[in-house]
Amino acid sequence: MRINKKWLVIFLVLISFITVAGIYLSRVNIPVLEPKGPVADKEFRLLVGITAIMLIVAVPVFLLLAYVVWRYREDNPKRGQYVPDWEHSRWLEGLWWVIPTILILIVSVISWNASYALNPYRPILTSKKALVIQAVSLDWKWLFIYPDQHIASVNLVEFPLKTPVHFYLTSDAPMNSFWLPQLSGQIYTMAGMQTQLYLASDVIGNFTGRSANLSGAGFAGMQFIAKSVKKGTFDSWVERVKTHSLELSLSAYRKLERPSSYMPVTYYANPAKGLFGDIIAKYMVPYGQAHENMGGVSS
């Protein structure tokens, strides 16, 4: 009877633990599992699908393990038959070479197709023209340049909902990874290189993004807000930033570039022409050969 009591206590602890965890999880935001845009949504569905397929192998493993350990333990009076020399079965071994292979084959096909379909460089097909935003990771903040709207912002990126947003990304600092989990997966930002990412939001909302790759002491402060708003709100925001903000001249950029962390949201008007290209180019060609006047790599 004592054993029963022990199991009862363990059972109660587990149940209360699961209940508390359940209540907690229902109250918090879990971005990867609660996608708000088409890209993140497809990635989430893929995640669920693959997990389901894998359970086909995992569940039998768990059941078999529990059964074997219960049935064949030495002190079990109802222990199953003991066959010490049974070491091989062509049929059984074939089974667990073949079945996982088939499952992995299925997952591979899904994976191959998904890899193309969800390539971050692949445009989101809608009738609307994509909004272009150039993102630069700096020590330790995100600069977003809107080349067509002639504005820029730091640690906040705003865009109209249900419109594809086409990011071009680079870094003027160590390598970072751009991650806005509720809308799309990550892409690296690297000095002297350009990566791209398409995303869109289906709803109005504020989403938290951050850098996912360690980039130095202020790395934890590289958090930014993404605002998905109505087209009208977006347009008036652009106008406001344009008229009420400081210019992002080259000298202003040099100041911005200096290391700082947890930088409050800041807006700029009129970013220097070709700024994004120059940030990339300064790592590509020696000093003096860069077009415009960014200069070469410092130090």
Binding site: V32, A40, K42, E43, F44, L46, L47, I50, V107, I110, S111, A114, S115, A117, L118, P120, S177, W179, P181, S184, G185, Q186, I187, A212, N213
Partner: peptide, 12 residues
């Protein structure tokens, strides 16, 4: 190992 899923889980 599925690249698009990894985009969401990498470095997390």
């Amino acid at each position: 190992a599925v690249p698009p899923v990894d985009f969401q889980l990498h470095n997390s």
